[in-house]
Amino acid sequence: MTTTAVHGGARNAVSDSLTMIGRSIRLSRRNVDTLVMSIVLPLLMMSLFVYVFGGAINTGTQYINYVVPGIILLCTGYGAASTAMSVADDMTSGMIDRLRSLPIRSSAVLTGHVVASVARNLLSTTVVIGAAIAMGFRPNATVTDWVLAAGLLLLYVLALSWLAAGLGVIAKSVESASTLSFLMLFLPYLSSAFVPTNTMPSFLHAVSENQPITPVIETVRGLLTGTPIGNTGWIALAWCVGLLTCSFTFAAWLFRRRTHG
């Protein structure tokens, strides 16, 4: 039996990406520890902030309504961090050589990991929002608001996932990938996620006002709970699109560099 196949072309590029997406999703689903942790940790953080610290934090609203958007972004950080680790795993094992010796666009391996990351985040975000509503989160958003918030979060997740994929490509090991992605887990704490930024010392206030997470959180908070948005929506959009463009270019460039020796 001989089977001949034609390689290259747009149709195959799509089918290669779909195959790699299927693979990454299957791997995520079976990596139960990571998947559970990426849901449980944000839930724990939310309980901690709502029930332990929340009473002492004055945000002028119900604290749970204030903190949920921050928890959602924190959750995204965890989801993306595991992307860096799975990319690093492929890059440092023999897998990348096997894939690159096939007649495919080998960057499909990154596409696979990023799309799986988005899927994981979709799941964990849904669980977190569900739990938040059970804990007393009361959004007053219209359908349009929900769609806009989801769209912005999607852009943000994509940007962070490509950034994580890039970090996974440069990491020399899975362990160093996890260290590199620490920053993504840390940034939400220096934003308006948990406390209003005007309570911070002035230099931190400047940092938190001028990093991407604060406008994204403010926009999502505004869309879901009706706090004023002003022009932060546009700033958030600009950050997300800019970050996505940069991190995609960064990841693709690193991948080419690392794989063309």
């Binding site: 693979r23 791997l27 023999g94 897998m95 050589d97 096997r98 010796s101």
Partner: peptide, 12 residues
């Protein structure tokens, strides 16, 4: 190509 290190997905 079959490289020196085995290239398989352990979770598949």
């Amino acid at each position: 190509l079959t490289g020196q290190s085995v290239a398989l997905d352990d979770q598949q």
